[in-house]
């Protein structure tokens, strides 16, 4: 499972992309968030933490098979 990181989450993990194929096998978005927060406790201090699957905001119950493009979306601040 490949995960893209942006903004402050990129700084927290120290990379813009990490392959978690061996470590993470979440069945859905909620589980992915839970596993990432366990690995990176700093994530729990953010105002929000959204997940995009195939470049669309994903609900917590969306199932994952590991082949999607997954991105972690910290609080946005454009404009």
């Amino acid at each position: 499972m490949n995960v893209l990181f942006f903004g402050i989450t990129k700084d927290i993990v120290g990379s813009s992309e990490i392959n978690f194929s061996n470590e993470l096998k979440p069945v859905n978005v909620a589980e992915l968030k839970k596993q990432l927060i366990k690995s990176y406790p700093e994530f729990s201090k953010l105002n929000s933490l959204a997940v995009a699957v195939n470049s669309e905001y994903a609900d917590d119950d969306l199932p994952l098979n590991g082949n999607e493009e997954i991105a972690i979306i910290p609080p946005v601040s454009g404009g």
Binding site: K45, P75, V76, S77, G78
Partner: peptide, 22 residues
């Protein structure tokens, strides 16, 4: 400003801050 995935870092003289992160 609410939904588009764009992030802004403020650079001050002696620190940088991701806006709205915390």
């Amino acid at each position: 400003k609410e939904t588009v995935p764009i992030w802004k870092k403020e650079k001050f003289k002696n620190k940088t801050v991701w806006v709205s992160a915390h």
